[in-house]
Design a protein around this nucleic acid. Sequence first.
DNA 1: CAGAGCAGGACTGAATTTGTCCTGCTTAAT
DNA 2: ATTAAGCAGGACAAATTCAGTCCTGCTCTG
Lengths: 137, 137
Amino acid sequence: MLQVSRKFEYGLHAVTYLATKGQGRVVTVKEMADDIGFSQEFLSKAMQSLKRAGIASSVQGVKGGYTLGRATTEITVADIALAIEGKPHLVRCGVKAESCEVFSSCHHRGYMGTLQHKIQDLLEDTTIYSLLQQIVP
Amino acid sequence: MLQVSRKFEYGLHAVTYLATKGQGRVVTVKEMADDIGFSQEFLSKAMQSLKRAGIASSVQGVKGGYTLGRATTEITVADIALAIEGKPHLVRCGVKAESCEVFSSCHHRGYMGTLQHKIQDLLEDTTIYSLLQQIVP
DNA sequence: CAGAGCAGGACTGAATTTGTCCTGCTTAAT
DNA sequence: ATTAAGCAGGACAAATTCAGTCCTGCTCTG
């Protein structure tokens, strides 16, 4: 259906939320979930993915929570997509060649590959910083 | 996962297959399925979608089958995607505003909208004709 | 040492995708 | 006129993926 996953939507919202809170501020998942209006449990999963990718960093224990792991100019939408959905594969043969019945005779692999690359470029072109500029002009 | 559906892959293969067979030639689903290596039943579904969109046209009865509905220069990858997957909705709120918990306060709708538009443009830029050129230089 | 909060594995239910089956309609050929 | 090839399309079944929950453990502050 060429649709982004819900977890990605959660993640993107979370990152912009953290960005508006400022760099130093540590925010709990509960606060974010309540404020934004998401399920706390599920948002937590998204945050864990973002943390593993270095996009967010976490503070353990009481008074713990999440902060952005780096500057908003250094986080692109592509980073978030990669952190949450893993490497993109527009077509199945990108994941597993065996999953394609016509792999050896396929005419479209080249095109689909460059298409995916172009989409990737679009995502890399947007940093969280520039995204926030668009929101609050 | 931002992946194209299998039915779309079937459809794209079918269209290029028909294109290489030449305009007039009527081809049965069975022939295509055997030649390409797809399930006949499922490919048939894809063809029906393509037909409804005018991309393919069908001939009923014995000696029936499918042909391309118009010139390869007049069929884009976007046309095939639309025929088979329907209108694209990168995010859920495009389908149903209610499916988004934060619709009213959402910061990303604008960006996701233009992103979707750009992807759409990429798909519209490729005609079957140009796709075939890439394959057989 | 109690409790807030992150980490992450396991599991469940829902939704979507993929694929099959069956019945009916159209038409060329006999 | 009858037969069989082939499209049309609804209904259904299986498989996969996604979304969301639950639970247990670990870490740190007060």
